[in-house]
Simulated assay, not measured.
Amino acid sequence: MASIGPWMNLKQTTQKHSVHAEMLGSVSRPVKVAKDLLLILVGVLLIAVSAKIAVPMWPVPITTGIVAVLGLAAAYGPRLGLATIALYLVCGALGVDVFAGSAVLST
């Protein structure tokens, strides 16, 4: 077996990397689809709520939505992350109150 260093060999470096959302266990196809849909809905809800929380800074206040987006991207990976952001944008385009500074919670 080829050795890269005294502490690592090639066999150890070929492990599959996965995101946190895929570590919930292997399940059948319908259960996986339901799990993915639930994760996407929870992600949209998290982004919508965090978009309403503003950190007062001068001259432009910053929302915590960016923290939620980056956290979901790291936890969900590219496929679920993109689906979550796409559904968030579709909800906003349909008139759901999900964006920062929208009518319901603005003062």
Rank of each mutant, 00 (worst) to 15 (best):
P30D: 07
P6Q: 09
M23H: 06
P78G: 00
T13F: 06
L80T: 02
V67W: 09
Q12Y: 02
V44R: 07
K16P: 00
A68D: 01
W7S: 13
S102M: 11
T13E: 08
P78V: 00
V42Y: 05
G77V: 02
S102H: 09
L105A: 11
A75H: 01
W58E: 08
P78M: 01
V60I: 15
L105S: 06
L38D: 09
A73Y: 03
A83M: 14
N9V: 04
G25L: 06
G71S: 04
A54Q: 15
K11F: 06
G65N: 00
K52F: 00
P6K: 11
S26A: 11
A48I: 06
A54C: 01
Y88L: 11
L80R: 10
S50G: 00
T63W: 03
T84R: 04
P78R: 09
R79S: 06
A68R: 03
T64D: 00
T107N: 12
Q15L: 13
V33F: 06
G81L: 08
A83S: 10
T107Q: 14
Y88P: 03
Y76R: 00
T63Y: 04
V96Y: 13
A51S: 14
V44L: 04
A75C: 10
V27L: 11
V96D: 02
A2D: 10
W7V: 01
I53E: 01
G5H: 13
Y76M: 04
P78Y: 01
L46S: 10
V33A: 09
V44I: 13
A75M: 15
T84F: 01
M8T: 12
V31I: 14
P61Q: 10
R79A: 12
L24E: 11
A2M: 09
Q12T: 05
V19A: 03
L80P: 05
T13K: 10
A68E: 02
I66V: 15
D36H: 13
M1A: 10
V44P: 07
V31M: 12
I47K: 02
M57S: 11
A2V: 09
L37H: 04
M8Y: 07
G101V: 07
P6C: 02
I40C: 06
T107A: 14
L37G: 08
P30K: 10
A48P: 06
A51Y: 05
A103T: 10
L87S: 08
A48T: 14
L72D: 05
K35Y: 11
L87Y: 00
L10C: 08
K11Y: 05
G43R: 04
T107F: 09
I62F: 10
M1C: 02
L72R: 02
A68Y: 01
V44F: 05
A51Q: 14
P6W: 00
G71W: 01
A86L: 15
